[in-house]
Design a protein around this nucleic acid. Structure first.
Lengths: 343, 343
DNA sequence: CTGAAAGCGCTTACAG
DNA sequence: CTGAAAGCGCTTACAG
């Protein structure tokens, strides 16, 4: 890494300049900066005025060096990046986390670790203390990064339940099973009885839970489970398209399909359209996520809304609490059925 | 901001531990860390072995404190965030920049400044030296942030030409005008003569240039410009839909339309479909960007590919060069016509 | 080529 | 409530 100082920047004012301007010691300035405890109102005021006058901004490197904290948070994306970037949910999550952190004046470092090599490098970087905590977004959850970070004692909160780590790692997730149950119940309420499903990956909590919800409701309704009506996808649009083609071949009488993500549902719509099936007349289609994809497709998708705003806000809240010394926690948030044109 | 040290992290090894392990002074370790100049091969080797053995990772805060560099780069998004996050191009750009930077082991800080208040706060943060340079992504380009950062001497490269700042600020952009020319020429080559356009915002370089290209080619082909065939949008899907409706009302005989972004083109497709016009039989539709939206829509869009991978790579290259002391530079990259189903 | 030393800007016990 | 002082982990002239 080679970076030199740039041309035009003049040396910013230091705590020393502020102290001189305010006529107090540097210690007092620091105390004002750190909450104003044990500082007389007069000194307090003088320092604040001096800060305004000098345009002082704390040097975080100096502060971090002594406190041992970095005052920044990492947003870590492991595993296939393309998929996440293709997924509109990712945007909402990233934006939500950035904003929630900005409210605390904490910068967010974006970290991508798609290869094992990068994952090793990033893990070292993190465990060296360059961020105070990590927001982990990973699709497949046999993900070793979560375990490594947990072992190193790095505060961590995952988006979705990390399989295999139980409640030792904090996570925030929507209630996938309940959402799936709502959707399948909705499809049955329409009178459909040949309800197919395109699942998510089965090494993913969402993938597992949504399938479980589907099976439960079918069983409760006394509808026999037909293996030909279940195919698996990987959350990508392409896998939805392929999945629908398989379903059509295996179970031509399918009259509804629950698809574990809106993106896959877009693919399903494409395949159905090509096969000449009308949606929702011939086949009702239910998605999951309520992502922008849901209203971008035609017909617009009936889907299950994941509360992304709350998810990101909770992830940040739990992480900050954990950095503050609290124990890990799991937060499960309710979903909501959004009825549109596809059912 | 209140963040306490977390439970399990033990104190990481310092340069002092490495020096002891290697049997050299701390200065020598530092020299190895910073390029290995003026270090004997023997010392070099001993230090490297000690680094491996101790698992040493440099403390960036200490380094930054003394060098005055932060060894990190900011990715700054000003103006309406929703639009950018909705825009698939944003993802590609963000990912490309993150990866290009990762190759230099430089972390990327994501900064969102949608309100004037946030913009002020971020500007202070940046000018205080917390990042070495800024990758600026802003739609409307009367954007005061670019000017403020330039004045403060912060190395900066914009995505797209910042209006009003001339070549004082580095930027990387696709050749918008040339791309637009290619598309309109393509539409004319299909025999269409009533070619409409949905423009981008006219306070945006891309918005201006793409319209200019459209007008140029029409003039060159001897096709009179019809004001009824030109409406303006804001790059959002919704504005494309509304724009197409206006065009249909003003110029029902329109047989082709050039839309300044794929996202708007999706909206155009929706409106055309609703009006019962077949694409491309009745109306040929050309987009711009070659974003994921282009293949997600049906029919798939003929469009102009922006070389996003190269754009992000060049942005990073130019920024690092500028941080290294070079003067600002503008880089214009060629576009490419991608023929699909909509023309 | 190498070590001893100063110093980056801050925070935090420690005396008062 | 406040100042003087030590020290966080590193880099970089400065002597040798």
């Amino acid at each position: 890494m080679t970076m030199n100082a740039s041309g035009g920047r003049r040396r910013p004012p230091t705590i020393h300049d502020v102290a001189r301007e305010a006529g107090v010691s540097r210690g007092t300035v620091s105390r004002v900066l750190n909450g104003g405890h044990y500082v007389s109102p007069a000194a307090q005021e003088a320092v604040n005025a001096a800060i305004r006058k000098t345009g002082y901004v704390v040097n975080r490197h100096a502060r971090s060096l002594i406190t041992g904290r970095s005052d920044s948070i990492g947003f870590l994306l492991t595993e296939p990046q393309e998929r996440f970037f293709e997924d509109p949910n990712f945007n909402v999550l990233l934006r939500g986390c950035t904003q929630a952190l900005a409210a605390h004046d904490i910068p967010l470092l974006l970290m991508l670790a798609g290869t094992e090599d990068e994952r090793r490098r990033i893990t070292r970087y993190i465990t060296a203390g360059h961020v105070d905590g990590v927001l982990l977004v990973s699709s497949h959850s046999g993900d070793p990064v979560a375990e490594r970070l947990r072992e190193a004692g790095v505060p961590l909160v995952a988006c979705g339940k990390p399989i295999g780590l139980g409640s030792k790692v904090s996570y925030v997730a929507a209630d996938d099973r309940d959402g799936a149950r709502d959707m399948v119940r909705h499809l049955l309420s329409l009178g459909r009885r040949r309800v197919g499903m395109v699942t998510g990956p089965q090494d993913t909590p969402g993938g597992v839970e949504r399938l479980a919800g589907y099976k439960e409701v079918l069983a409760e309704a006394g509808v026999a489970l037909d293996e030909n009506l279940v195919v698996s996808g990987d959350y990508s649009r392409a896998s939805g398209e392929a999945g629908a083609e398989r379903l059509l071949a295996q179970a031509p009488d399918m009259d509804a399909v629950f698809v574990a993500s809106d993106l896959m549902a877009q693919g399903v719509l494409t395949a159905l359209h090509r096969a000449g099936r009308r949606v929702p007349e011939d086949v009702a289609v239910g998605g999951f996520d309520d992502s922008p994809a849901a209203v971008a497709s035609s017909p617009e998708l009936t889907t299950i809304r994941q509360p992304w705003d709350r998810i990101s806000a909770e992830m940040v809240r739990v992480l900050l609490a954990q950095i503050g010394g609290e124990d890990p926690a799991a937060v499960i948030l309710p979903t909501e059925l959004v009825k549109r044109e596809s059912t």
